[in-house]
Structure formats: C-alpha cells, structure tokens
Design a protein around this nucleic acid. Structure first.
Length: 454
RNA sequence: GUGGUUGUAGCUCAGCUGGUUAGAGCGCCUGAUUGUGGUUCAGGAGGUCGUCGGUUCGAAACCGAUCUUCCACCCCA
C-alpha cells in the first residue's frame, strides 16, 4: 500500500465517472440557461467571517477553516494558547475558510456587485462546497452544488419556475418517481404561534421534521425534552395526521392555523404557488405539501423545498427556499431571493443505483493511428490533423511501439476505428482501416475513411 | 462531536484456537504472433499483511494508539 492518499471524505473522479458527472452537470446547466439564468463563480475560499454565523451553531462547526500562511501564531497570546480557548484563537490563526454552500457566497457577491447587477438577478452556479462532516452514505466532505437563485423579486412566479426546473432536470435525467416537498416558513411560525411557543419554532420544526424517520413517539419524546409541555405537545398532534392530497392538507391546515395571521399567509402562498403550477404541466414530479418539512431555518423565510427520490433511499437530492433578507446581513436590506440547489453527487448515486446513465456517454477517441516511426509520421500526421478538422476525435500513438502494444492501447480505450499506415499503404494511398468491434479490416482511401466514421 | 465497523498483491478477497518460505481469481509484463487488440497456451514480476507501539520463544492473527473505509446519531446536498 502506497503512502499517497487524499483527505477523508474527498474523492478522485476517473474518466468514466467524469463522463457521467458531466452528463448531470450539462443537463442541469442547459435547463438553468433555458430558464434565463446566467452563470457566475465565486472563490473556493471566503473570508471566514463571511461564513460564520450563517448556518447556525451546527453549521459553524462544519466549516473548514484555512490556516493563515506564514507565522500563523503571530497574533495569538501564549496565555490563550494555554487555556485552549479555541473560539478566540481560531479567528486569529484563520482568516479564510472554504465555502460551505453557494447561497451565502452568492449573497456576498450580490452585495459587492450591486451596482453592476440588473434586478431581478437570475444567476446559477455550479461549484464544489466543503463540509467537515463525518462521511457516510450520500455524504461527502467535498461535493458539488448546482444552484439557481432569483434575487430582487418577491413574486411567487419565481418559486413556480424553480419547481418546474426541478421537474425538468430530474425528468431529463431519467428519474421516474420523485417528490418535490414544499412547506413554508410562515406556516411553521404559525404552528409555533398557535401552540403558544413562538420562540420554540426551531426546536419544534426540527423535531417534527423527523416524523417519517423516527416515528411519532420519538418525536414527542424529543419535544418533551426540548421543554414543551404535554399540553403543547398534544396541540401538535393533529399535524402528524396531515397526510393526503394537497387540497385536503391545506384545508385542514387552514383550520388549524385560523388564529395565526402569519400562518394563514403561508398557506395563501402555498396555494398561490400550486395554482400557478397548474398553468403548466409537470413531467414526473409530484408536488407534495408537507408541514413536517423544515430546512435552512436559519435563513429561509417563505417557501421551503426539498426533493427526494421515491425509488432510492437517499437523503434529499435537492433543496431550496425563499430568504427574504439574505443580503441584509451584508448591509443590503430588503432584497428578497429564492433559490434551489441540486446535489449533484447524490443525484449521481441515485442514478447509479437506478442504472439511469446512458451507455453511450463516452466522448472518447473515435479514430486511432498506429505509429510506425518517423517516415510514417510524416505521412500520417497531416491526415490526423485533417480528421480533427472534420471534428473526429482522433489520436496517434506517441511513439513507434510494438504494434501489439498499440492495438492493445486502442482496444482498452474502446476506440472503435484504427488506421494502420506503413510502407505499403503509403505507396498505394489505400489505408488499412480496422473496425475494432467486428475485427474486420479493409483498404480505403482517406476520404472514404472519414465518411465511414462520420 | 458521539457510537460502531473496515484495512492482506493494481482490484476483489482467502488465510483455522498465534508457528517457519503469506495464497487464489482477475489485472499487469514477456513469449508463441520481428505489421494487428479483445479468445487460447507457456512463463514472469508484484505484498516491511494501513501505520506506530506493546504482549510473546514466535504476530497478518492478541492488546493499545493513530490514520483510513463504511454505517448510524447530530446535522445535511
């Protein structure tokens, strides 16, 4: 076993894997562009303070900090080192951090470039993000997010367009059965309000979010542990029975939230979104109103989305939601945004499990020239150039190795056609042209050869 | 951050309650075929058993630490 390796939770991607990954990225990118989004990129690192405090306490722990260059202990007093007061020391030894998601860097970008941006601004961004989490199934320390956000518009039409993008991308990737779960932060606020503990909104929603996973009893247990009274827990119970079709769920929810202004507002938003989706047709997506869905509570203020495959057991493969004031923390208030994120790596795992990748993804070499040496190169290299000019992916073996070795190379790279040009072929102009799949070989001139391939 | 799990040849793995030169299949290299791959045949290379330390006459095997893998929790794409 060699000593080389890569950090925990991070991966290499070999050519076959990259072909599949690019298939996903290309599909997502094409759809984003089709809906009018423009691409940006931001640096792998942000200033640490740009990121900290944006993802909750848990999130801060998962941010990879980058050690300062040079004498990074310069600013640290010996006393604080001895006391191991990490909270104070970290900012002194690390001023940069790897981005944790694409949304916060995007908010920073918008604030920084506000004078160049025409609002509403529709951008997309496909880049890796890093989290210092323990790796496990569907969870990596480095993974790609593919985000599309609209910032500077309150309209719910944006939410609808994003739902449509979920549908279009995942359908195009071949998924047959997936659910776009939708909730609204205002509904969650309403629930906390109705049971009289608005300050407990986060604890309540995080607990009921686990309903499907751990069951009702455990959820209630957790609620009790978080300091809710039995009476309050009793009031939450009707929410666990809110299953069924969206209309029915909303009807009962409206009844439940009748005394909460904000809660009713959330319901109206959900209804509006559902109504407008109705103007379009969805392919394979099922839109489900789910009051137990609680995501990104640290910044979402309106709609909350999460997409799960119903065919494979995996965490959520996409997420998203509306944040009324994300740029406010960077000094640009009153800009409302809504965005979604595709988790490309999880989508990959789902597609792999469902065998959804097309077999013909490879953009490998189509035509291979055997190399016999300097004299032959003089004859063959111009032909190679011509083939490439015709758009044929072609290559020549870089040295005059044994033919067996060259053929083997072509075989292992799955190159479908091989040209052999030696003395005989140079004299006659009839090239030996071999079909590697059938094993057949014939003599053709160069133009015929090009026609055979294209 | 908590709990569990894994590590033997390039890959997938075997290796008995500790016993001498650690195995298989696949892959790789060479030749049969000095201008023909994928099939066949013959031969060959390749491992300080994750790392460090301990127990023992003796450790791949037992113990400890550490790293890595995978899984669950927390949280999340």
């Amino acid at each position: 076993m060699s000593k080389v390796g890569i950090p925990k939770g991070m991966r290499d991607f070999s050519p076959e894997v990259m072909a599949k990954r690019n298939y996903i990225f290309d599909t997502i990118k094409r759809t984003f562009q089709l809906y009018g989004f423009e691409q940006i990129e931001t640096p792998a690192m942000e200033n640490r303070e740009t990121l900290t405090g944006k993802y909750g306490e848990e999130g801060d722990r998962l941010i990879f900090s980058v050690l300062n260059s040079g004498d990074y202990l310069k600013k640290v007093e010996d006393v604080s080192l001895k006391n191991r007061n990490l909270e104070n020391i970290t900012p002194l030894v690390s001023e940069k951090a790897l981005r944790y998601d694409l949304t916060v860097p995007f908010a920073r970008y918008v604030v920084q470039h506000q004078n160049e941006i025409t609002f509403p601004f529709k951008r997309f961004q496909i880049q890796p993000v890093w989290r210092a989490d323990r790796p496990q199934k569907g969870r990596y320390r480095e993974f790609y997010q593919c985000d599309a956000d609209i910032i500077g518009s309150d309209s719910l039409l944006n939410e609808v367009e994003l739902i449509k993008i979920f549908d279009e991308v995942l359908t195009n990737l071949g998924m047959q059965d997936f659910s776009i779960k939708m909730n609204n932060r205002k509904v969650l606020s309403g629930i906390a309000e109705v049971i009289g503990r608005p300050e407990k909104i986060v604890d309540i929603t995080i607990a009921i979010d686990k309903l499907e996973k751990i069951g009702r009893d455990k959820v209630n247990e957790e609620l009790l542990q978080k300091g809710l009274t039995n009476k309050e827990i009793e009031q939450i119970q009707p929410l666990f029975e809110l299953k069924g079709d969206n209309k029915e769920v909303l009807q009962r929810l409206r009844n439940y939230l009748q005394n909460s202004e904000v809660g009713l507002e959330g319901i109206v938003e959900i209804e509006k979104i559902l109504e407008v989706i109705g103007f379009w047709s969805l392919n394979k997506a099922k839109v489900e109103v789910d009051v137990t869905l609680a995501r990104g509570l640290d910044y979402y203020t309106g709609a909350i989305f999460e997409v799960v495959s119903n065919e494979v057991k995996m965490g959520s493969i996409c997420g998203g939601g509306r944040y009324a004031d994300l740029t406010g923390i960077f000094g640009l208030p009153n800009l409302s945004g809504v965005g979604i994120s595709f988790g490309a790596d999880r989508i990959y795992d789902v597609m792999e499990e469902l065998k959804l990748f097309p077999t013909k993804l490879s953009q490998g070499t189509q035509l291979f020239f055997v190399n016999f040496g300097h004299k032959e190169e003089a004859y063959v290299l111009p032909l190679l150039q011509k083939a490439r000019e015709k758009g044929i992916r072609a290559e020549i073996y870089p040295e005059a190795a044994k033919m067996k070795k060259q053929m083997k190379y072509a075989d292992q790279k799955n190159i479908p056609y091989v040209v052999v040009v030696g003395e005989e072929e140079m004299k006659s102009g009839r090239l030996s042209f071999k079909n590697m799949q059938s094993g057949e070989q014939e003599k053709v001139n160069f133009n015929e050869l090009i026609e055979r391939i294209s």
